[in-house]
Design a protein around this nucleic acid. Sequence first.
DNA 1: GAATAATGTTAGGCGTGTAAAACATTTATC
DNA 2: GATAAATGTTTTACACGCCTAACATTATTC
Lengths: 164, 164
Amino acid sequence: MTRSTPRAEPLSSSLEDYLEAIYRLTPGRTAARGRDIAERLRVRRSSVTLALRSLSARGLVNYAPYDRITLTAKGRTAARDISRRHEALRHFFVKVLEVEEQEAERAACKMEHALSPALRRRLTEFARFMKRCPLGVPQWVKGRRFHCPAPPVQRRRTGGRGKP
Amino acid sequence: MTRSTPRAEPLSSSLEDYLEAIYRLTPGRTAARGRDIAERLRVRRSSVTLALRSLSARGLVNYAPYDRITLTAKGRTAARDISRRHEALRHFFVKVLEVEEQEAERAACKMEHALSPALRRRLTEFARFMKRCPLGVPQWVKGRRFHCPAPPVQRRRTGGRGKP
DNA sequence: GAATAATGTTAGGCGTGTAAAACATTTATC
DNA sequence: GATAAATGTTTTACACGCCTAACATTATTC
């Protein structure tokens, strides 16, 4: 019966992985099964138990032995954030950098833990920009090389940072 | 005098950090001091000793107790690669995403270990593209937002993944 | 060259994250 | 509902990476 205030320390990469796994395994609101978490993370069931205890102590999952596993509100929020970091990276790798799906996934998995809010925001904004902006962009692509056929439009109004 | 065949397993993130630190501390060819490695990695000197043993066992550094620390040819190659991964990320974060220098450094430090050769290449090529390409690019920037003055060209040829 | 400071090493310990194996509980299945 | 299968848990152990504290060696300084 772990009472006391939840530990506030930042999550380890490992625990973030567990949290994310639970999140992804419960699209609606149903409970996750330890078995599936283990499989997803390629880890033993016993390891899952330990991790769940730790996450529970932090107030991120509702967990009691042999009971159903769900995310708390706090846990869900945290998990969503982690998941977004993951997606931001994966998306960027696939859509902008155009690397293989699998490779992107693998890298995103490992890098997501280091993606700060600022970086994530920028990355996402940037990917969106790349998608929308119809000219600077698609020159990059198609196979290995890219070219920039852009005409010498050059200077448009420099928005404010005057440098005469 | 560590003989035996070097261990071939992939380096841990931690060992990569040590290797990189040594690399950066020896611009020319002089030996690195454990003291400095420790300081750089914010780690105790004793930890450095352990790491050096491990790196030595892998044939990446020339090391014997109380002796000078240098990289082997193999170690230098590996270190250069790691360093490049680091730089590729940092550069991208700073020059393209335009996040704060310090933040970029911090993220690069952690992410570098997961950057595959393919990804690194793409990232570098892309950053170069962004730098050169005079139009698609600089719209993104100047503070927080970006805009894409491009005309509504919209749909370009959908390259293959048709989804009617 | 002795005394002192700086640097490097060893020994022992801790926290984290994992696994293996034995056990407990729950869920299927008949 | 008894039995078997699946799932979850505990215990014990191990690898890794770091630390502290004590010790060893090397470098400095006078």
